[in-house]
């Protein structure tokens, strides 16, 4: 009974970790940003999953329905999605500026141009 439930969460965790891996392993700045997107969306999937109620319907009150999906994860994730896209916009704008200033959007090439690796 418990196993299939947890199995779903494990797939979501695998998704998060793929996104996380892209962010920390890839050298291309655009790819990093989109890896971050995968990571964040997977965390959102995790939140929405816990709001699920067996047999529940969308949380819009209507006569004839008694069981609703939990609305709180939806509310939190609406906020988090907005924060995510805001970060992405600023991140991509930075990438454009970095390309102008360094002529590259590859991490290792930029580090070379910066002349010092911390």
């Amino acid at each position: 009974m418990d196993f299939p439930g947890l199995f779903n969460y494990w797939i979501v965790i695998a998704l998060m970790m793929i996104g996380f891996y892209i962010v920390i392993s890839q050298g291309n700045l655009v790819k990093k940003i989109f890896g971050l997107n995968i990571f964040q969306v997977s965390v959102f999937v995790f939140y929405i999953s816990m709001g699920k109620v067996e047999g529940g319907t969308a949380p819009i009150l209507a006569p004839g329905f008694a069981t609703y999906t939990n609305p709180i994860p939806s509310v939190l994730i609406l906020t988090a999605i907005v924060v995510g896209v805001a970060t992405m916009a600023v991140g991509l704008a930075l990438v454009v500026r970095i390309r102008d200033a360094f002529g590259s959007i590859e991490d290792d090439e930029i580090a070379k141009l910066e002349g010092d690796v911390t």
Binding site: I48, G51, A58, I60, T69, I77, I81
Partner: peptide, 10 residues
């Protein structure tokens, strides 16, 4: 999963 508002936004 019944989270239509979030789906719409995403």
């Amino acid at each position: 999963l019944g989270a239509v508002d979030v789906a719409f936004t995403e």
